[in-house]
Amino acid sequence: MARTKEFDPEAALQSALELFWQRGYEATSMADLVEHLGIGRASIYATFGNKHELYLKALDRYNETHDSGLLCELSQPGPALSAVRTVVRRFAAEASSKGPRSKGCFVTNTANELGPHDTAAARRVEASWDHIETLLRSALTRARAQGELPADRDPRALARMLLVLMQGLRVVGKASNDPGRVRDAAEQALRLLD
Results as ranks from 00 to 15, higher is better:
Ser82Tyr: 01
Pro79Phe: 04
Pro77Thr: 08
Leu70Thr: 15
Ala58Arg: 02
Cys72Gln: 11
Asp60Thr: 14
Gly69Pro: 02
Gly78Arg: 07
Glu73Cys: 11
Leu59Trp: 10
Tyr55Gln: 08
Leu54Thr: 07
Glu35Leu: 10
Ala31Cys: 00
Leu71His: 14
Thr47Ala: 08
Ala58Leu: 03
Gly78Tyr: 07
Glu73Leu: 15
Leu54Lys: 06
His36Glu: 14
Leu33Gln: 10
Tyr45Glu: 06
Gly69Trp: 11
Leu81Met: 11
Phe48Glu: 09
Tyr55Ala: 14
Ala42Gln: 12
Gly69Phe: 08
Val34Glu: 15
Ala46Phe: 08
Ala42Pro: 00
Thr65His: 09
Leu33Glu: 05
Leu33Trp: 08
Ala46Pro: 00
Glu35Pro: 00
Ala42Phe: 04
Asp67Arg: 13
Gly78Ala: 08
Arg61Val: 01
Gly69Val: 04
Asp67Ile: 13
Gly40Asn: 14
Gly40Gln: 12
Phe48Cys: 08
Leu37Phe: 06
Tyr62Asn: 13
Arg61Pro: 00
Leu74His: 05
Glu35Asn: 10
Ile44Asn: 01
Arg41Glu: 15
Ile39Arg: 01
Gly38His: 06
Glu35His: 12
Leu33Thr: 08
Gln76Met: 10
Leu74Arg: 06
Leu54Asn: 09
Ser82Asn: 06
Ile39Cys: 05
Leu74Val: 02
Cys72Ala: 11
Leu33Gly: 08
Lys57Arg: 15
Ile44Trp: 01
Phe48Arg: 06
Ser82Gly: 00
Ala83Asp: 03
Gly38Val: 04
Ile44His: 02
Asn63Trp: 03
Glu64Tyr: 05
Asn50Phe: 01
Ala83Thr: 05
Ile39Asp: 01
Ser43Ile: 02
Ile44Cys: 06
Glu53Cys: 02
Pro79Gln: 14
His36Arg: 15
Gly49Asn: 09
Ile44Val: 13
Leu71Ser: 09
